[in-house]
Amino acid sequence: MTSSERAVATTENGMSRAILEISGLHHRFVHNGDSRLVLHDLSLAVRRGELVCLIGRSGCGKSTLLKIVAGFLTPAAGECRLDGHLISRPGPDRCVVFQEDALFPWLTVRENIGFGLTGRQWPRVKLDREVERFLDLVGLGEYGEHLPRTLSGGMKQRVALARVLIREPQILLMDEPFGALDAQAREEMQELLLRLVRQRQQTILFVTHDVQEAVVIADRVLLLDPGSGAIREEMQVGLDRPRDRNDVRFHACCARLHQWLRV
């Protein structure tokens, strides 16, 4: 099965249509004269409301793929479509939670969260209420007036999550958002994420290094293979939610993903 066939297959075996469709994507980086093909005929599809995890070795092109979907990079060939529309530049229908701190340091937590709403001609009261709601949703009710530099890494990522969720993007792109957190904070953030996104049927493409993380949150896991530059493996995580990290089947899933990464 070629990767483009796989993309079609995934659209057909699900109940709802694909919202993100990537087909025949190529991307190369030219560095000091020699060019390196990072993505090669990559195709994948994400269904509406689905949480897809993308795993792969460091340097295999996960961030590159996410940047193309976000519109920060233009692919050499191939196309990405969101809800049928060709992606050509960044837009609020595809929001990113970056791995690094990307909050605006000159804005308070409250202002950071409300930043994406500044374009809307909403009355002040409505705007404030909406920001307040998201502040509470991510559990930062008391930190509204804090500046980002006074927050811990986990709290910063909560703000980053709130400021994109408030825009209600069609798809959320997350690039190892919890990679810099300690194990405890990471698990808390995973739970928070699931709590926030499951009820609103948020579609997510989530990049991670962490096999456990993938099995905890994903509906489906994809392996991006550095050799071929395309999606090589796919696994439906059929476990019931909330998932039990000590369950045998949970461990079986993890083992399988570990196996993928080792080959």
Binding site: A70, G71, F72, R89, P90, G91, P92, R94, C95, V96, F98, E100, A102, F104, F115, G116, T118, G119, R163, V164, R167
Partner: peptide
Amino acid sequence: IWFQAGAMLGI
């Protein structure tokens, strides 16, 4: 990254 964040937030 700040410009990217701004662009994706619709600024």
